[in-house]
Design a protein around this nucleic acid. Structure first.
Lengths: 176, 176
DNA sequence: GTTTCTAGTTGCAACTCGAAACCTATTTAA
DNA sequence: TTAAATAGGTTTCGAGTTGCAACTAGAAAC
């Protein structure tokens, strides 16, 4: 019994290029509203009605997105102790770890879309000085552009360890 | 003559929170396929049929996305001189400047989604050593987390110049 | 016990996506 | 010099997704 059609519309991006993690990341965070909900979470919002009012999103879509973000481990649900009608949505470590990505996107928007640096400004709490622009750094701290980058096979990676004798049998990557 | 309904479904994210550049950035890059097309561009693809084969996207959607990316200044069109049927899509400076964001998202995916570092690895061409993880840096290079950050009014920014006189005007608006 | 509040679900209309077919302007082949 | 192939679209249509409003279940307040 062969099915006439598998009927698999909207193929997951992850299957497009299995070698790269970017499609996988986009599978959860690429959805409309996902980043906006994340941003609201970082800004201290925790409850359904708070997201609803802040974002102006439809109830069913918010419900759907929160469920998906919880399923993918970016947010976690917890019932409130003082009011058991309420549910708290909080960022997990996986969710918190999206902050650099979010700030990078925000800085890009500041530079190219709005034109002006937004107010208020994001600063290091300790000295109240503005954070650096998010950038790509070499192991020694040099800022790299796309001209300086290339892909190499993981085996041919230079780890900095002394391995002059054999080139290309390194198994572990240091950065990630 | 008043229209019966403005019929403005799908309100632009940019209007949701005008104070922040992130929604504006998401307006163009938040669309499905936008980041995948960007990634393909960085990987040296320039033509319609190349994107089509590489991404497995539908023709009409690809056409639509390329038009939007050109309209928002991330890609630029140029007719080929040697074959006037062909059109070249190339990254503008605005597009190239999305590389840190893209790598940040990729690294997040590597860490939390796929688990394993992908192969091939992105390295500094000069010494063939892996790039650093994208992170948030203070002006002196310390790596910051969300605990270390706060928002302040742009007027109260510490620029590094000596200004001990006024302190405590920190408007702690958000916790991001 | 009724009302209110929180977090949903359901139904329906409008919109977007994906696959295939079609279209137009250029090469290339016969 | 026609005929076929190629590049980059647009059109059509069914299916999936989004947005809005109305409704619902459970907990709290009155």
């Amino acid at each position: 019994m062969t099915q006439p059609t598998p009927a698999k519309l909207r193929e997951p991006l992850a299957e497009i290029a299995a070698c790269c993690s970017l499609p996988q990341a986009l599978e959860t965070m690429g959805e409309r509203w996902s980043f906006m909900i994340l941003r609201a979470s970082f800004n201290g919002l925790h409850h359904f009605e708070e997201f609803l009012e802040e974002l102006g999103i439809a109830r069913n879509i918010l419900s759907n997105r929160l469920t998906r973000l919880v399923e993918s481990g970016i947010l976690k649900r917890a019932p409130c102790v003082d009011d058991r009608r309420k549910i708290e949505y909080r960022l997990t470590d996986k969710g918190l770890d999206l902050l650099p990505t979010m700030i990078a996107l925000r800085q890009w928007g500041e530079k190219w879309e709005s034109g002006v640096p937004s107010n208020p400004v994001l600063v290091d709490e300790r000295d109240r000085r503005a954070i650096q622009p998010i950038s790509i750094l070499a192991h020694d701290g040099r800022v790299l552009t796309h001209h300086d980058l290339c892909w190499i096979d993981i085996g041919d990676l230079n780890t900095g360890a002394v391995d002059d004798d054999h080139e290309g049998v390194v198994k572990r990557i240091a950065t990630i």
